[in-house]
Write a protein that binds this DNA or RNA. Sequence first.
DNA 1: TCCAATTACTACACGCCGTTTAGAAAGGAC
DNA 2: GTCCTTTCTAAACGGCGTGTAGTAATTGGA
Lengths: 237, 237
Amino acid sequence: MSDHTTSRRDRLRAQTSAEIKAIAMKLMADGGPDAITLRAIAREMGMTAGAIYSYFATRDDLITTLIGDVYTSAVDAAEAARDAVPPTDPGARILAWALAMRGWALANPEGFRLIYGDPVPGYRPPGDGPGKHAEVRACNGLVGLVAAAWPTVPARQSTDRAYDWADFDPDFVAHVRADFPDLPPAAIAMTLRVWGRMHGLMALEIYGHIRPLVHDPSAVYRDEMRDLIASLGACTE
Amino acid sequence: MSDHTTSRRDRLRAQTSAEIKAIAMKLMADGGPDAITLRAIAREMGMTAGAIYSYFATRDDLITTLIGDVYTSAVDAAEAARDAVPPTDPGARILAWALAMRGWALANPEGFRLIYGDPVPGYRPPGDGPGKHAEVRACNGLVGLVAAAWPTVPARQSTDRAYDWADFDPDFVAHVRADFPDLPPAAIAMTLRVWGRMHGLMALEIYGHIRPLVHDPSAVYRDEMRDLIASLGACTE
DNA sequence: TCCAATTACTACACGCCGTTTAGAAAGGAC
DNA sequence: GTCCTTTCTAAACGGCGTGTAGTAATTGGA
């Protein structure tokens, strides 16, 4: 009956841990990231708050794990949308990624806040961890999108900074150059700009700054993304 | 000695109110928005927490007031930078606004979080209030920047949505049409896009997503803004 | 000038929170 | 069967926003 590699205790432990995270997600969906309290989770599970410390050393550890899960689900959605479009149309792949991200954010606004905002009172993200891993995946995805469009990107402005590999994080650079050996440093800067451009309207919308002004933010976002794609020379007809 | 219009009590009240806000700002600068607690403010003032309820009905009221002050100071900085550039160079005025905003955000990251993030646990911004007023000022400033550049903006893509005045908030539209009677609705959509574009990299940077990747985010931001200006046809040499 | 009303404040209580500690109970290893 | 580890409870600590009762001071009007 029992598995050779995982003891009964390990299975119970994994199950309880998953239940803690699931309840935390539900609390967040209902009342925002602030509603994630150890006491509320324990209440929902019929336990005491102290019991959770058997699974997560501190509340911030739990939040960090949640950020990793949530970020991963967002990047999964973006990658799936991108991969549903043939690589022969880089512009359409960029658009698919962007719209998937926005769709995910609108469907999971509290998750978006968890990733890109102040997650929870007093929380400060650790240098590494599962959230970092998902962020690297997101960055790599964007680099791939930019790399696919790079041959058509117009020569940069004379006023642009002349980027060098040393301008970027060594680990990040190593990843990128392994996947795209011919990509110049300027493409990395462009990737960051693309990221910012996708993020800006999304963040303003999720935090309620845009919706009071325009009835259909999705149209504005779509136009912005089309302009972005056009500026990369990867026109989609 | 005493003023005819303000009683001694009123003056003391205004002074205490200002002190509460000043201490709240200091606490925020030191420990982030989460450090703004009524008890900490009262401690700093040698009072009890309950006393603050004579000045602000609730903690969220205080936060709302702070958001108004902070947002106003940010917009003041942006407008001053813009006005230091002659109106004959719309592109340079846009760049000045954008760089002033980013400079302010870097100098007051907690203030930026207060305005554009989850300010404080459980806080939800009210529909109107002083924060709204500053946001309207910021929007109007951006509309003015876009309006000045509008004659040079290339015709929109055929894929763009055809915007109508009914797509936007009536009050917002009334303001805009009073100031810029000849501006078409598409310019409002463009203004929102400009806002998003200025906001994106800034938000990613303030929340720590960019800095681990690139050593000089300001160069990336500057390039992005230059590209934005170029896309508006308001090239700055 | 004195009185009544308003205001500013303290003291205390309530229920929430994260976290720690001590101890009980149960599971697995030998 | 014994020992050790893990999981949980119960209780406590300090901190939080908020409400209430009561006190002292200030104010404006008779």
